[in-house]
C-alpha cells in the first residue's frame, strides 16, 4: 500500500523496487524527530540479500540515526522498517529477534572492557543463542582467525590497539551469525596505519557474500565493494547510484559539492 507513494517519488525509487523481492532490510517512508528537530525525512530504502551499500553525507545529515533505526537503537516515529520479514514495533521480543540477526560495528568499538577478547566474543552466543560455552569459544576463535588476531584471545580490550579492537568488534558481531552487518564509521576513530587492517577485513567480509550497510567516507572502499552508494543530506536520501556513476556523474549539486570536499583531502 505504500508502494503507490514510492512510485510517485519518481527518480529515486528504481533501485529500491529492484531488490524488494528478496529484501533483507526495508525502510518505508520512515520519519524521525529529536524533539522538534526532523532528523529523518521520508526514508525509503531496500537492501537486498547480499547487497553492499555505502552511506555517505555531511556530518549531522542523519546517517548514524538511519542505520541505528535498523536495529532499534533509535526509535522511528512513522513509516515501517522490516528486517528479514520482521517489522520493528514496540514489541521487545521482536526487537530482540531483529537484533540477533543484525550485527553492528560502532565508531568507538564499544568492546566490554571487563571481559577478555574471547569472553566478549562468546558473550552473546552463550547468553542469547544458548550455545555451550566450549562451542561458542571454538567458533569465536575461528572468527578471531578470520580477523587475523587469534593470539589476542586472552587479552583485555584495553591492551589492544585501536585497529585490533575494531577487528575484535567485527568478530564479536560475526559470532552471532548475523544476516546483515551495520557499520557506523568503523574507521574514523583510527590512525591511518590501522585503517587498512580494518578495511581489509571488511572487504573480505563483503566477498563472502555478507549483506552490509556501511556508513563511511572511505571512498576507495565504496568503489571496490559497494553495489550502491547512498548520499544523505539534512535527513534525506538525496541520491543513490552505482559507485561508478556516483563518483563520476553525480546528479545533484549537493553531491558534487560533498564529493569535491571529500576528494580534496
Amino acid at each position: 500500500m505504500r508502494e503507490g507513494t514510492m512510485v510517485e517519488a519518481g527518480t529515486k525509487v528504481s533501485s529500491a523496487i529492484r531488490g524488494s523481492g528478496d529484501a533483507m532490510v526495508r525502510m518505508d517512508g520512515v520519519h524521525k524527530w529529536y524533539g522538534q528537530f526532523h532528523v529523518l525525512k521520508d526514508i525509503n530504502l531496500t537492501v537486498a540479500k547480499g547487497e553492499r551499500i555505502v552511506v555517505c553525507g555531511p556530518s549531522g545529515s542523519g546517517k548514524s540515526t538511519m542505520i541505528r533505526c535498523i536495529n532499534r537503537l533509535e526509535e522511528h516515529q512513522s513509516g515501517h522498517i522490516v528486517v528479514d520479514g520482521v517489522e520493528l514495533t514496540n514489541d521487545l521480543k521482536r526487537i530482540e529477534e531483529v537484533r540477533r540477526e543484525v550485527g553492528m560495528v560502532f565508531q568507538h568499538f564499544n568492546l566490554f572492557p571487563h571481559l577478555t577478547v574471547l569472553e566478549n566474543l562468546a558473550l552473546a552466543p552463550v547468553w542469547v543463542r544458548q550455545t555451550p560455552r566450549k562451542e561458542a569459544e571454538e567458533s569465536a576463535m575461528k572468527y578471531l582467525e578470520r580477523v587475523r588476531i587469534p593470539e589476542q584471545a586472552k587479552k583485555y580490550p584495553g591492551q589492544l590497539s585501536g585497529g585490533q579492537q575494531q577487528r575484535v568488534a567485527i568478530a564479536r558481531a560475526l559470532c552471532m551469525n548475523p544476516k546483515v552487518m551495520l557499520f557506523d564509521e568503523p574507521t574514523s576513530a583510527l590512525d591511518p596505519e590501522m585503517i587498512k587492517e580494518v578495511l581489509d577485513v571488511m572487504v573480505e567480509l563483503a566477498h563472502s557474500g555478507m549483506t552490509m550497510l556501511v556508513v563511511t567516507h572511505e571512498m576507495g572502499f565504496a568503489k571496490t565493494v559497494a553495489n550502491r552508494v547512498i548520499f544523505m543530506d539534512r535527513g534525506e536520501i538525496i541520491e543513490e547510484n552505482e559507485p561508478g556513476e556516483f563518483f563520476t556523474h553525480p546528479r545533484s549539486e549537493r553531491t558534487k559539492l560533498f564529493l569535491s570536499q571529500i576528494l580534496a583531502h
Binding site: 537503537l73 530482540e96 537484533r99 540477533r100 543484525v102 553492528m104 564499544n110 566490554f112 552473546a124 558481531a173
Partner: peptide, 10 residues
C-alpha cells in the same frame, strides 16, 4: 548499545 546490538535483553 553494544550489548543490545548483539541481541542481549535489557
Amino acid at each position: 548499545e553494544a550489548a543490545y546490538a548483539v541481541g542481549l535483553s535489557p
